[in-house]
């Protein structure tokens, strides 16, 4: 182990973690506003990856340019899913029911993807996918740098939307207390639908980067959703900043431990930290229990 390797692992962790953070942000936004655990988030990421794949292979559209199509497409998919399935879930069992319903949605989408694309692994190819730039004595892949840039831009846009727009105020009010938000005239129903759409839309970007750095098939969604859920639990359910910090933290810790103690300890070390954090702060790093208790 040397200093360069440690620095390299930290930078790798931050670059990759930011993409996970982006995907997890959608999940936590949906939970925060709607009180819904969207276990279909993993398959939406894969759907985003397959959409990029289809545009790239069949129409020759660059992966990043293709986002102009895939992000709005997944936004619409999210809106439809929320309107058709999730808006009907009401009552005290809403959280549990949402898990079942989104799991069912996930299985349906997985089945369709398997039928359309088969279970064979594919990967997104572009001229920059395997190239790199030398920094601090080691190489950083363009795709990771571009992925990081994309995550920063999209998370920045999300931040501006949440904190600099009227709609953002409505979202934050809904995040804090849905009943109070409704009482002051916010259309919580509409906010929920748009937030679900946004939460799903960001998976298009996450999916594209994931697909350009990993061979994937529809079943890759299972690994993804388990990691995304861990991230939002660590960050605090419903906390967007928490998802950002936890996403980067998860991958960085794993990468750092991999270099310092060996790869076989990487997962263990992260989960150990997760257990310690949750023991001290059951609501996660940035979670606010009082909001959920009400």
């Amino acid at each position: 182990m040397n200093g360069t390797a440690v620095l390299h692992s930290i930078i790798d962790g931050v670059l990759t973690g930011s993409v996970y953070a982006l995907m997890a942000t959608g999940l936590t936004l949906i939970f925060g506003v709607m009180n819904i655990i969207n276990v279909a988030q993993g398959i939406f990421v894969i759907l985003g990856a397959y959409l990029s794949y289809a545009l790239s292979v069949h129409l020759g559209i660059d992966l990043f340019v293709g986002l102009a199509i895939t992000i709005p497409t997944l936004f619409v998919v999210g809106i439809v899913v929320e309107r058709v399935f999730l808006s009907r879930i009401k009552g005290p069992e809403r959280v549990v029911m949402s898990i079942l319903v989104t799991y069912a949605i996930s299985l349906v989408i997985e089945g369709v993807l398997n039928m359309v694309f088969s279970a064979n692994y594919v990967e997104l190819h572009a001229w920059y996918a395997n190239r790199s730039v030398r920094v601090f004595g080691f190489y950083l892949g363009y795709i990771y740098l571009l992925g990081f840039g994309l995550a920063v831009v999209l998370l920045g846009a999300l931040y501006v939307m949440l904190y600099r727009t009227r709609f953002g105020s409505s979202v934050r009010a809904s995040l804090a207390d849905q009943t109070a938000a409704a009482l002051i005239g916010i259309n919580v129903r509409r906010v929920s639908t748009i937030c679900f759409g946004l939460g799903v839309a960001v998976t298009a970007a996450g999916g594209m980067i994931y697909g350009a750095t990993n061979a994937f098939n529809a079943s890759s969604s299972y690994d993804l959703i388990s990691r995304l859920l861990v991230i939002i639990v660590l960050g605090g359910m419903g906390s967007i900043g928490g998802a950002l910090v936890a996403g980067i933290m998860m991958i960085t810790i794993e990468d750092l431990v991999s270099v310092v103690w060996g790869p076989v300890w990487s997962n263990l070390a992260f989960f150990l930290i997760l257990v310690v954090v949750l023991s001290l702060r059951p609501q996660g790093l940035f979670g606010k229990p009082s909001v959920r208790v009400a």
Partner: peptide, 12 residues
């Protein structure tokens, strides 16, 4: 070295 079957990141 051995690594877990499903690491989040193979790059490192």
């Amino acid at each position: 070295k051995t690594f877990p079957a499903e690491p989040s990141d193979y790059t490192t």
